[in-house]
């Protein structure tokens, strides 16, 4: 970092020293690999030179863009579901309970994250498979005659996605809802509001930064998830990250995989940007 030698005053030096890890991290692990990906995706492997072939492949082969579309739609759906389930949970933790039980409940949301995603996913597989816990229990109780397969459906993927993303929705929501003074809610009631319009006009507008940041995180996590759709979705998983993995690892087609990676980055950023536009939020407001 030549900047260090250029800056004279010790304060500036200190600032740069503090910034250095961040800059290095950004440069080495974020910017350079992405530039590398970009270069790969644009270079022709055999004859050399520059080509858009691999991007063309994405749009030309309906299989790829449809997989992406499916991934995006499922991720959006997972985000909405996570929000719908996470909001009451967060509201309960932030507003309805006080003291020690609050911490305990929050910790309970955290517990599943003490084990790796793989273990959590296998947990679901043990529960949901045809010879699994739920199916066996239902048979034992006499509700069904033979085992039911609860795995390998879109609903299972959704379940897994919502489950593994829940914490990332609840945490920002709890912190924004925590910052909502009870007196605002009371003022709402006092002025004649009922539960529904207090939620709509006071609580949700206040929680909007938390909702948006939670949604962005959950959407990105779902879109970038690999294990959950592949393991729980089985033969119907069709997740875009699976395509990228396949291109890189089993097809040795790094150029195509890079193009997919770049496209995932661009398209997901686009979706997030659109989402922010539609809800009238700004990224800086949400993250600040």
């Amino acid at each position: 970092m030549s900047t260090i030698s250029r800056s004279r005053s010790p304060i500036k030096l200190g600032m740069w020293l503090l910034l250095a890890p961040l800059c290095l991290w950004l440069l080495l692990l974020i910017i350079l690999p992405h530039l590398e990906l970009l270069t790969y995706s644009l270079s022709a492997p055999d004859e050399g030179g520059f080509t858009f072939e691999f991007y063309g492949e994405f749009f030309g082969e309906s299989l790829y863009w449809r997989t992406f579309l499916r991934t995006a739609v499922m991720s959006i759906l997972a985000t909405i579901l996570t929000l719908l389930i996470g909001f009451p949970v967060a509201f309960f933790i932030a507003k309805m309970i006080k003291g020690r039980s609050k911490g305990i409940l929050f910790a309970m949301c955290l517990i599943p994250f003490w084990v790796s995603e793989l273990v959590r996913t296998f947990g679901w597989m043990i529960l949901l498979r045809e010879s699994g816990v739920i199916s066996t229990a239902l048979q034992w109780l006499g509700f069904i005659d033979s085992g039911v397969e609860l795995l390998y459906t879109d609903a299972t993927i959704m379940l897994g996605l919502v489950y593994s993303a829940m914490l990332f929705m609840v945490v920002p929501l709890v912190s924004t809802l925590d910052s909502l003074d009870d007196s605002y809610i009371e003022a709402g009631y006092d002025l004649g509001g009922n539960n529904w319009n207090i939620l709509r006009e006071i609580v949700i507008p206040h929680a909007m930064p938390g909702i948006v940041s939670g949604c962005i995180i959950v959407f990105m996590l779902s879109l970038g998830n690999y294990l959950t759709p592949v393991l729980l979705g089985g033969k119907d998983s069709l997740w875009f990250t699976e395509q990228i993995y396949t291109q890189f690892i089993t097809r040795f087609n790094w150029e195509q995989g890079s193009a997919f990676g770049i496209l995932l980055l661009i398209l997901s950023s686009l979706i997030v940007w659109l989402g922010l536009k539609v809800t009238g939020q700004s990224f800086t407001k949400t993250m600040g």
Partner: peptide, 29 residues
Amino acid sequence: PPNKRPVNMVFQHLALFPTMDVAQNVGYG
């Protein structure tokens, strides 16, 4: 219930809704 009483309250920290402008605040009730 509080939302049906002919009683209104000015809160200690006023509890003006920060997400609304002045007219929306006053017009809320």
